[in-house]
Computed example of a mutant assay.
Amino acid sequence: MFDQLGPFFQALLAQTGAVHLSWGNVVMILVGATMVYLAIAKHYEPLLLVGIGFSCIVANVPGPPDDVPGGQAISALLYVVKEGGLFHYAYEGVAKLIIPPLIFLGVGAMTDFGPMIANPRLVILGAGAHLGIFVALILAKLCGFTLAEAGAIGIIGGADGPMAIFVTMKLAPHLLGPISVAAYSYMALMPLIQPPVMRLLTTKAERQITMKQLRTVGKAEKIAFPIVIAVIVNLFFPPVAPLITMLMLGNLLKECGVTERLAKTAAGGLMNVIVLVLTVAIGSTMAADKFLNWNTLLIVLLGLVAFVFGTASGVITAKVMNLFLKDKINPLIGSAGIASVPIAARVSHIVANQENPKNFLIYHAMGPNLAGVFGTAISGGILLALLGAG
């Protein structure tokens, strides 16, 4: 009797996904679990990492071999992605560039561009912090990627997830998975990545510099700003106009004073739904068989290089500006020129506050941080124009 139970249990086990669990699956499950841990225990952008990490875990739990024709064992989640269910349409929203503009709409409705309007010279920092894009592009080309693929990889350094998705879908759609994962993961991990670079390139005295309070920006300026920017972008940077147009629309809804309900919807309920869809779509691309390969690992490494160089170039740009300014700026806000709003500005403030508890840089850092959004858009527009994907 017991001899007959062996084949029975073997057959029963064969109908599950357990026998198909590979070391690659285990590695990616641990990666997903680490993301969830960092989100919960360290509070590193939980709105992003919980969804991405959980979806990564589920995407690497193999299903039974009968899930697909031919007996190939893939996870139930990826089966739904492939065949057309909830996760399929979540991914399609990203791939067909529906999700990125809607994210920009919500970001615009949450954003106060006052700091950038009040101190326009800080826009320079938004440009200076984007050296990482072109460093990563050059390195990617040297590593054997095509020029279009290198451009898509380079845009990771702009630290703008929707823009990274948008440019990648135009230049190298087959790299959407690893590029979007690298962009959003590094954005969430900026509190780990940026501070060592910032401290290395600044002195204690520089980190303790306090800045004067910015002037109050009038309502008319705030209303005119999104309209003017939308016109300029549509005239001169049409390849990225859909994203910036939606960003400006969201901001106009916020600032005009007569569409409060729409602004709250864009910044609240709609934004929350879009983030859920986006994180599931990104995490579902992290299956071991597609993610654990040399090209993906190289893209992730190049993304880290882009973030480090972007942070460094922003800080150095601020130090150079101080050579010509009477009222010195704290070089730490240069790192906020990377476009991850408001993560990079918050990191600048935290590092400065650790050096001088009376130093509150968050409002000042938001200036270059917001300028970084336009810096990434301009960089993306240039890449699309030069590589013929406008």
Rank of each mutant, 00 (worst) to 15 (best):
M1I: 13
D3M: 04
P7W: 11
P7N: 01
T16H: 08
V19E: 15
H20N: 14
H20V: 13
L21G: 07
L21A: 12
W23M: 04
M35I: 07
V36M: 15
A39S: 02
A39D: 10
K42H: 06
E45F: 00
L49N: 04
V50N: 07
G53E: 00
N60T: 04
D67G: 04
D67W: 02
P69D: 13
G70N: 08
Q72V: 14
L77G: 04
Y79G: 09
G84K: 07
G84H: 10
G85M: 03
Y89E: 09
Y89V: 08
I98F: 00
I99C: 06
P101Y: 03
A109V: 01
G114W: 00
R121G: 01
G128F: 09
L131I: 04
G132F: 08
A136F: 06
L137P: 07
L137A: 08
I138R: 13
I138E: 08
A140R: 01
L142I: 08
C143G: 15
T146M: 15
A148P: 09
A148R: 04
A152L: 10
G158D: 11
A159C: 12
D160G: 02
G161M: 07
P162H: 13
A164C: 03
V167Y: 00
M169R: 12
L171Q: 10
L171N: 11
A172F: 11
L175Q: 05
I179R: 02
S185A: 15
S185E: 11
L189T: 05
M190K: 06
P191K: 09
L192C: 11
L192W: 14
V197I: 15
M198L: 08
R199N: 09
L200H: 01
A205G: 06
E206D: 00
E206G: 01
T210E: 15
M211I: 07
L214P: 03
G218N: 00
A220W: 14
A224I: 04
F225L: 13
I227G: 12
V228H: 05
F236R: 13
P239S: 10
P239M: 01
P242M: 01
P242A: 11
I244Y: 06
M246K: 05
L252F: 10
E255R: 01
N272F: 05
V273N: 07
V273K: 02
V277G: 01
T279V: 12
A281L: 02
S284E: 05
T285D: 06
T285L: 13
A287S: 05
D289W: 13
L292E: 11
W294R: 08
N295V: 14
T296N: 15
I299W: 14
L301E: 01
L302Q: 09
L302C: 10
L304M: 06
L304P: 15
V305L: 14
F309L: 00
G314I: 02
I316Y: 02
N322A: 01
D327M: 03
D327I: 03
D327N: 15
K328H: 07
N330E: 08
L332C: 08
A344L: 14
R346G: 11
V347F: 01
H349E: 09
H349V: 03
H349G: 08
Q354S: 10
Q354K: 15
N356E: 15
N356S: 13
N359P: 12
N359Y: 14
N359V: 07
F360Q: 10
L361E: 12
H364K: 09
L370F: 03
V373T: 06
G375P: 09
T376E: 06
T376P: 00
I378H: 05
G380P: 14
A385P: 10
L386N: 04
L386I: 03
L387V: 13
